[in-house]
Computed example of a mutant assay.
Amino acid sequence: MAPPDVVRLAAPALQALARDIFVAVGVGADDAALWAETLVWANLRGVDSHGVLRIPRYLELIAQGGIHPRPAMRLLKAAGAIALLDADRAPGPVAMARAMEEAIAAARRVHVGWCVARDITHAGAVGHFALRAAAAGMAGLVMTASIPLMAWPGSRRAVVSTNPIAIAIPAGRHPPLLLDMATAKVALGKIMSARQTGAPIPPDWGIDAEGAPTTDATAVATLLPMAGPKGAGLSLMIECLASLAAGNPVIAPALAGAPGTAKGGTAMNGVAIALDLAAFGDPAGFVQSVDALAEAVAAQPKAAGTDALLLPGERGDAELARRRRSGIPLPAGVWKQLTAAATRLGVSLPAPLEG
């Protein structure tokens, strides 16, 4: 019998597997749990490009020294609303969770908190950290900056990065509004996912080494920006706010040919911002207004063939509910890699769901 194309796991089982794999390579138990939670949260919401398929690469980076499994993070500066965190190449979710903690703490003191985190690693789905602010009744904004991965309009090679931005707004009856997007047409993880499955990609996702559009994910050398100059310009501004503010520029040194971070890592930085909405007035009135806004948009006439007008985050919320019920589907190739890693590290494998 041929092996299945998809293996389905219950979310708690997949999260425990990811946590145990990270612990087995030296990550502290609490950090491993947070890292695993972030990855599986992405899988639950259907953002598989930022989920557990990344684990094999993370393990390589830990082995090479590109990710520090037990980082010595230090708060370099805390003054009024701002904080500067040296993440010491911590797992990205660990660094950005700490950055948002600092931002929320500052916002509780002075109504806004802005934490720049330098020397982080890949943070995954950054909406996860923006939602931490929403859970505290605040607006949250998260951005990260990394090496050139995306073309500048008119360029033939990578000039800026796919720098993501996420904004979370608390609501009342309605779940928090969550915008979570890359500045590229698609995130690099979607190209990685297509490479895993062998699926063709749209021709406006990326260009090959000669600068020509391609539908072959394996041929993509450079991603294309969302909305052309708008996505490229937004990415450049995130580099200013995250990297230049951190005193750790990424793009200019890379374009000048400076060597990358030693031992297999790449230079990355992040920003976490929390805004205390109660400072402007009644917080109950604010969330009621968010609910009213969401309901007003959803109630507008739909175009032919449209089932519903979805607000930011609703598609992911619906997928999360489905996958909590029926399990998380993993391509056979991803499951094979996780199985190999777990076996090598002596980690027990959970039983896939039937059907």
Rank of each mutant, 00 (worst) to 15 (best):
V7W: 05
R8E: 05
L9F: 14
A13G: 09
L17I: 09
A18M: 10
A18T: 12
V23C: 13
G26A: 04
G28L: 12
D31G: 09
A33M: 11
L44E: 07
R45D: 03
D48T: 05
H50W: 01
G51W: 03
R54D: 03
I55Q: 02
R57K: 10
Y58T: 03
Y58S: 09
Q64A: 15
G65H: 05
G65M: 00
G66R: 00
H68Y: 06
H68K: 13
P71V: 11
P71C: 02
R74Q: 10
L75C: 14
L76C: 01
K77R: 15
K77Q: 15
A81I: 06
I82W: 08
D86K: 01
A87F: 00
D88E: 08
A90Y: 00
P91G: 07
P91I: 00
A97L: 11
R98K: 03
M100F: 00
E102N: 12
I104R: 13
V110W: 01
H111L: 13
W114V: 15
V126F: 00
F129M: 14
L131W: 02
A133W: 03
G137R: 04
M138K: 03
G140N: 02
V142Q: 10
V142L: 09
V142P: 01
V142D: 03
T144M: 13
A145F: 01
S146F: 10
P148F: 00
L149G: 04
L149F: 00
S155N: 05
S155R: 07
A158P: 09
T162K: 10
I165K: 04
A166M: 08
A168W: 07
I169T: 11
A171K: 09
H174Y: 07
M181T: 10
K185P: 06
V186T: 07
A194L: 07
P203H: 07
G206F: 00
I207P: 04
I207V: 14
D208G: 07
D208C: 03
A209G: 15
E210N: 12
A212R: 15
P213F: 10
T215R: 15
L223K: 01
L224A: 06
P229Y: 06
K230T: 08
K230E: 11
G233R: 07
L234M: 10
S235L: 08
L236V: 10
M237I: 12
I238P: 06
L241K: 03
L244A: 15
A252P: 04
A252H: 02
G257L: 08
P259W: 02
A267T: 05
M268Y: 06
M268C: 06
G270T: 03
F280G: 09
S289R: 15
S289H: 13
D291N: 11
L293S: 12
Q300S: 14
L310S: 06
L311I: 12
G313I: 04
G316A: 14
E319L: 14
L320S: 14
A321F: 02
R323F: 05
R324A: 12
R324P: 01
R324F: 05
R325C: 09
P329V: 08
V334D: 06
L338D: 00
L338I: 01
T339C: 11
R344D: 12
R344Y: 03
V347W: 00
L349M: 14
P352V: 11
L353N: 02
G355V: 06
